[in-house]
């Protein structure tokens, strides 16, 4: 898909990270990714400024900005706010037009999204109140094993066995994990079990919306190779390899929507 014209930005302020993508002439021109702080306005601006700095641009050079993520309601720098569900759909469709099903796992929620050939959302389901099945859950588990979050997936993939995790609650899962370690189970086998248990919860979301190939995995957790493998096994699918950092998909979708809105509003033809 090719877009030509001016500079358009998308800013996705999530619970753990703020991301920004700048589009120019239909191509990704620059990106920014920073940890989210308590001030979501500041977090979004930091991500946007990082992308602007990388691009050698000023904010005034941007024709249109769309904010998304939970920080979108506090985004005075944005021309419009759109939910991240719509943005992940558009961002995925922009990069991978054949995708019809998206799994998005972020810091505080998990989404199952079905889209059509134009990247419009057909149906979606989200985890509601529970942290299990989110990046936050994996963060807690990384803390239990005192390993880096980004190493969790590789450790899980080195397992020789899968130790089932029965707790659905993050707090209970933490204590169950400690019990399993005390019982002599190997950390990599427990972590493998944790990844599979999260994948099974995600599979439950798809029982509501269905699965159609191709399948894409977006969000920060998509960088976890163990989670990708566990989801492929749970859903019996092969996940499309991302062309960019999957954590940036929401911001990319927001930038694509920014371009569409600016055209609709006559700011760019």
């Amino acid at each position: 898909m090719s877009i030509s014209g001016n500079y358009f930005a998308g800013v996705d302020v999530g619970s753990l990270a703020a991301k920004s993508v700048i589009l120019k002439d239909g191509e990704i021109f620059a990106t920014g990714l920073v940890p989210s702080g308590v001030n979501s306005v500041e977090s979004g601006l930091n991500a946007l400024n990082l992308a602007l700095e990388t691009a050698g641009l000023q904010k005034e050079d941007l024709t249109y900005i769309v904010g998304t993520g939970y920080g979108r309601v506090s985004a005075p720098y944005a021309n419009k706010a759109v939910t991240e569900i719509t943005c992940h759909a558009k961002g995925t469709n922009y990069l991978h037009p054949s995708v019809r099903t998206i799994i998005d796992m972020g810091g505080q929620d998990c989404k199952a999204i079905r889209i059509d050939q134009d990247g419009a959302v057909v149906d979606f389901a989200m985890n509601d109140k529970c942290a299990a099945g989110t990046g936050r859950f994996l963060e807690v588990m990384a803390g239990v094993f005192k390993v880096k979050l980004e190493d969790l997936g590789a450790i899980a993939l080195s397992a020789t066995d899968t130790v089932p995790m029965s707790s659905t609650c993050t707090v209970f899962a933490e204590s169950e994990t400690i019990s399993l370690v005390a019982r002599g189970e190997k950390p990599e086998n427990i972590l493998n079990g944790i990844h599979h248990s999260i994948a099974n919860r995600i599979a439950g979301l798809f029982s509501r919306v269905g699965i159609e190939s191709d399948v894409f995995f977006s969000g920060g957790v998509a960088k976890n190779s163990g989670m990708k493998a566990a989801i492929e096994q749970a859903l019996k699918v092969t996940i499309v390899k991302p062309e960019i950092d999957p954590q940036l998909i929401g911001a990319l979708g927001a930038a694509v929507i920014a371009r569409n809105f600016s055209k609709k509003e006559g700011l760019w033809a």
């Binding site: 939970y70 569900i85 719509t86 149906d123 979606f124």
Partner: peptide, 28 residues
């Protein structure tokens, strides 16, 4: 026609998470 189910938390406050889902449904 499209449908959506949402479970509301105890206080019944119209919080951001709920609005996020409703807005996504409207966008859909």
């Amino acid at each position: 026609i499209p449908t959506y189910i949402h479970e509301r938390d105890l206080h019944g406050l119209r919080d951001e998470q709920e609005q996020n889902r409703v807005n996504a449904f409207i966008e859909m």
